[in-house]
Design a protein around this nucleic acid. Structure first.
Length: 283
DNA sequence: GTAGAATGTCCAG
DNA sequence: TGGACCTTCTACG
């Protein structure tokens, strides 16, 4: 159940465990048997992420394109690998580690050109942006997305900002949690139209997404609560929840807002659950 | 045991 | 807009 930070973290995990050494590849479940055979015994030459898309490079053999969708999971373990369960779509194993992929929406072998086509239809990714302190060009060879193309679309759109933030063509990597949290942090009602945001609001959102999602990669979880609103600071009980991180509104329907004390609301928007605080977020 | 939900996306109508 | 799809985990009998 990943947002962009998870995918970038996974790309790094693959690189650390398998880079530049031949891997064994198999598809115990069978659905990727042909692809696995083509990369078997090839070295992993690169691992890349854009938004929620993960790309594992195998030199001339091409790229394994993975999208986890809502349910997909990757689990890493130390060698020797145990016998795989029959739901494993792709297993990679090396001398030190193995990785099992289950339940992805997408797992296919693609060419450089096909990979480029995927990049071309995705919006800028806050995790591919140059850090705020770097110069505009970024270090050689590193991607440096900027938020301008996203602003161009948002500022002309009558669609709600909540919908636009989830649209991967507009901005890549933001999912339901970051959407809800970043709108709360900037006091913006999720139903406001994109074109009713001003430039300063957008710039603040983009900068905040870069910071929040980098933190997400580092901690491997989503934390969005400012220090002064943490449980320790406010003397409230910590969150008891599967996701771990402290949040303002995500999955907190009918609970009191950490800032104004009002009830957090929830509604369905485009088949996804939306959470917001009517007291803190302005139309 | 089984229904339901879940941080996602695509396609048909 | 509604349904399909991929899997795991939890709550409830």
């Amino acid at each position: 159940m990943p947002e962009g930070h998870t995918i970038h973290r996974l790309a790094a995990d693959y690189r650390e465990r398998f880079a530049d050494r031949p891997v064994r590849a198999s598809s115990p479940q069978g659905k990727f048997a042909d692809g696995a055979a083509l990369i078997d015994r090839q070295p992993l030459t690169d691992a890349d992420a854009h938004g929620k898309h993960l790309f594992l490079g195998f030199g001339a053999a091409g790229w394994v394109h993975i999208h986890l969708g809502l349910f997909g999971k990757l689990t890493f373990g130390a060698a020797p690998a145990p016998p795989p369960t029959d739901t494993v779509r792709l297993r990679l194993s090396g001398p030190d580690a193995y990785a099992d992929l289950r339940g992805p929406t997408t797992c296919g072998l693609i060419t450089d050109a096909e990979k480029q086509a995927i990049h071309d239809r995705l919006g800028p990714d806050p995790l591919r942006a140059a850090p705020a302190h770097a110069n505009a060009a970024g270090a050689a060879g590193t991607p440096s997305d900027d938020g301008e193309p996203a602003w161009q679309r948002i500022s002309r759109s009558r669609t709600t900002i909540a919908t636009l933030l989830m649209d991967q063509k507009v901005i890549a990597g933001v999912g339901n949690v970051y959407r809800a949290e970043v709108l709360f942090r900037h006091g913006i009602d999720p139903y406001r139209a994109g074109r009713d945001l001003n430039r300063a609001e957008w710039d603040a959102i983009w900068a905040d997404l870069i910071a929040l999602m980098r933190e997400g990669v580092r901690n491997n979880r989503i934390d969005t609560v400012r220090p002064e609103h943490l449980p320790e600071a406010m003397g409230r009980p910590p969150r008891v929840d599967d996701h771990g991180g402290e949040v303002y509104v995500y999955r907190r329907a009918r609970q009191p807002c950490h800032i104004c004390g009002g009830e957090i609301r929830t509604a369905e928007l485009a088949a996804r659950n939306l959470f917001w605080c009517p007291g803190c977020q302005r139309r």
